[in-house]
Simulated assay, not measured.
Amino acid sequence: MGNRIVPAVLILLLVVVHAQLWFGRGSLGAVSTLQQKLDAQKAANVQAQQANERLANEVRDLKEGLEMVEEKARSELGMVKPNEVFVNVSK
């Protein structure tokens, strides 16, 4: 009878390990689900990064664009800011 207890305990432990592998936390199904969620989050992160880059480019263009508009207004329209003196040099 003592010879049958050891194999029975080993088989029981094997069943527990297999049950954990297939159904428990960290099981193959759970890992697959988490991997799919991770892939979806990575795709969302890429889209958000692209949107952030577009917005940063737009802000940069607006900042530079205002400088360009001011330069054209000064040279072509003679714009003068308050407390500035306009000097026109003729050649």
Rank of each mutant, 00 (worst) to 15 (best):
E84L: 00
L38A: 13
I5G: 00
P7N: 03
A48V: 07
V89T: 07
Q20F: 07
N3T: 04
L12G: 07
D61F: 03
D61Q: 11
N3C: 02
E76T: 03
K42N: 13
E58T: 08
V80H: 00
V6P: 05
V46W: 05
A19R: 00
V85P: 02
Q20D: 09
V17K: 05
E53N: 10
E70V: 09
N45R: 07
P7D: 04
E84P: 02
Q36P: 00
A8N: 06
K81E: 08
I5E: 10
Q41G: 01
Q36E: 14
L14T: 10
E71N: 10
T33V: 10
F23R: 01
G29D: 15
L62Q: 07
L38S: 06
S90H: 10
D39G: 05
Q47G: 05
V15M: 07
G26E: 08
N88A: 08
V9K: 13
S27V: 04
R4L: 11
Q49E: 12
G78C: 01
K72C: 01
L55H: 08
A51N: 11
A43C: 02
D61I: 03
K42Q: 14
E67P: 02
K63C: 04
A19G: 03
N52K: 08
A19N: 04
L77Y: 03
L12A: 15
A30C: 01
G2Q: 03
N57R: 11
E71T: 12
V6K: 14
E84I: 00
A73F: 06
V59A: 06
G65M: 02
V16Y: 03
R60Q: 11
L13H: 06
K42I: 14
K37R: 15
L28V: 14
S90T: 12
L77V: 04
F23A: 01
E71P: 00
Q50H: 05
L34G: 09
S32M: 09
E58N: 04
V46P: 03
